[in-house]
Design a protein around this nucleic acid. Structure first.
Length: 518
RNA sequence: GGCGCAUUGGUGUAGUUGGUUAACACGCUGCCCUCUCAAGGCAGAGAUCACGGGUUCGAGUCCCGUAUGCGCUACCA
């Protein structure tokens, strides 16, 4: 049977990186086994669901390269099916009407209220099967319903027994019916609830493998009960460890802000391949090669030089992926809220840099750099045309020290525009500390103008000769030139900068008095 | 409170029938390279494998307990 998996987010906000990771694992699994990856938007909570959020989910998946098969399913459109399923269970006596008036809950402390009630129940030896309407005769139930009395529909969970399932990640799971309440299927207003909707839709979509967050592990028992009541085959389940904040705290937008949203990474200049690679390694890892290949027997140490790298392309990720190697312990997303250098996980930033400088080919990198430059009005059409080779050379020169795509328009600005800012610290360090530079640099410019031909080598020879004549160290002129030409104290080799900027722009910038006049 | 899940350096992880000095990546420190900053190369610090018992000649690996964290315990999803 063909594997069919789904990613089923509720569109109540940005796409959380934990959800994105779930989507990724579903997708990797589907691609690995030649199955189908489906997308279902769980928009049953009409108050909280927004179209904007749906859009951001779809954009997020597209950005990170997860393509889905078949049409998107909107859960709200299936409400009639969910109701029909509940009514069928009602008719078959597997569910019942609960005429207890709906309890009012204040949204502020729901969790706390639930815990308190549960504690009270436990203290008095509460029986989950104590609902007085559970065994109301059908005629009376029908009569009261017909009379317009509001009711919720609950599943009639048997008094004795256990639900069991084998989780691919967490192993065999068992839960006594005594631990499971008669869950509500339909609210008194007639709207289906989460567990019912999920199960009915998963059956409807022919889902064979349910891969989702570990927060649903105990819910699964309720869903197994529903599959059984509905007479449908039970899919395989694989629950994924949660992604937590430092200190093992829940990663939430309210306390952690934009760091949890996938789109943040797009907006902050992440390469999608890099972020996908990073995410894949959160809660999963490939078998290290010596073990995978059987090169190392039990008890033997794996030779270090056979370690499999962590930088994996889409195909490598798919080839190596397996649900069996997903971990059970939660992964911590490491970052420091008040440290701009570590606004997100170090390793994510490192991996992004790795993609920018080496993992990506120039052709793969080009469209991203282009988009970044365009967004900052630094793109010129000639880069795609007459200046194509120059542009390539410039990008190859600077990409090796960048961490995000944004660096191309900030640190890299001086390569693409004559209108760039001088960093105060660079000016102080490389220019102001030596007053003679104000005179020397224009003289250097004149010297460079006389050099024929103007190349990396001749520029270097010219500069060094000029330094000797002037009786200063070459390093002084080199560092000063870097600041004059790029506005910065750091960057590529100075002679490569001369070469890439060309004689005319180099000379003009050396003569500019701008940094001194600021 | 009940039930469930987890626990290997700061972080992500490897560690496949229990077997010598617990491995790799990120981060950190130092050195080399050098016109700066990265990158790269080399070296290093950092883990009594949550804690306490038990089984065993031997436990990160098996068993029990404790602690901590997380999840579920909703007419939320």
């Amino acid at each position: 049977m063909t594997v069919r998996v789904r990613f089923a987010p509720s569109p109540t906000g940005y796409l959380h990186i934990g959800a994105a990771r779930s989507a990724l694992f579903n997708w990797l699994y589907a691609r690995k086994v030649g199955g189908k990856f489906l997308l279902r938007i769980e928009d049953t909570d009409l108050q909280r669901s927004t179209e904007e959020s749906t859009r951001s989910i779809i954009e997020g998946l597209e950005w990170i390269g997860l393509d889905y098969d078949e049409e998107i399913v909107f859960q709200s459109a299936n409400a009639p099916k969910h109701r029909a399923a509940a009514n069928r269970l009602l008719e078959e006596g597997k569910a019942y009407r609960d005429f207890t008036p709906k309890a009012q809950r204040d949204d502020a402390n729901v969790k706390q209220g639930i815990a308190e009630r549960a504690r009270a129940h436990a203290a008095e030896g509460f029986d989950q099967r104590s609902n007085p309407f559970r065994d109301l005769p059908a005629e009376e139930s029908n009569r009261r319903a017909a009379a317009g009395e509001p009711f919720a529909v609950r599943l009639k969970v048997p008094v004795e027994g256990v639900t069991k399932f084998d989780d691919i990640v967490y192993g065999p799971q068992e839960r006594s019916y005594a631990e499971i309440e008669d869950l509500v299927l339909l609210r008194s207003e007639g709207n289906p609830l989460y567990n019912l909707s999920v199960v009915v839709d998963d059956i409807d979509m022919g889902i064979t493998d349910v891969i989702r967050g570990q927060d649903h592990l105990t819910n699964t028992h309720k869903q197994v009960l529903l599959y059984q009541a509905l007479g449908a085959p039970i899919p395989r389940f694989a629950h994924l460890p949660l992604i937590l904040a430092p200190g093992q705290k829940k990663l939430s937008k309210r306390v952690h802000g934009k760091i949890v949203s996938l789109t943040t990474y797009r907006d902050e200049g992440f390469v999608p391949q890099a972020f996908r690679n990073f995410l894949a390694l959160l809660g999963w890892s490939p078998a290290s090669e010596p073990f995978a290949a059987g090169l190392v027997g039990p008890g033997e140490k794996a030779p270090v030089d056979e370690y499999v790298g962590e930088i994996m392309s889409k195909d490598e990720l798919i080839r190596n992926f397996s649900l069996e190697r997903v971990h059970r312990n939660p992964a911590i997303f490491n970052f420091e809220a008040n440290n701009p250098k570590r606004w997100t996980d170090d390793k994510a930033i490192w991996m992004n840099a790795e993609y920018i400088r080496t993992a990506l080919s120039f052709d793969e990198l080009l469209p991203m750099v282009k988009a970044e430059l365009k967004a900052n009005k630094l793109w010129r059409e000639e880069y795609d045309d007459d200046d194509r080779e120059w542009f390539r050379k410039a990008v190859e020169l600077i990409r090796h020290r960048f961490f995000t795509l944004k660096d191309f328009s900030s640190q890299g600005r001086a390569y693409f525009s004559d209108d760039f800012d001088f960093e105060e610290s660079a000016v102080n360090k490389n220019l102001r500390k030596e007053p003679r530079l104000k005179e020397l640099l224009p003289q250097l410019a004149t010297k460079l103008e006389s050099i024929e031909p103007f190349t990396m080598e001749t520029a270097e020879a010219g500069l060094r000769a000029f330094a000797d004549e002037a009786g200063v160290k070459a390093g002084l002129l080199i560092n000063a030139s870097r600041t004059m030409l790029t506005g910065q104290a750091v960057g590529p080799s100075m002679f490569e900068i001369f070469d890439i900027l060309g004689r005319e722009r180099s000379v003009t910038r050396l003569r500019s008095g701008v940094p001194w006049n600021q």
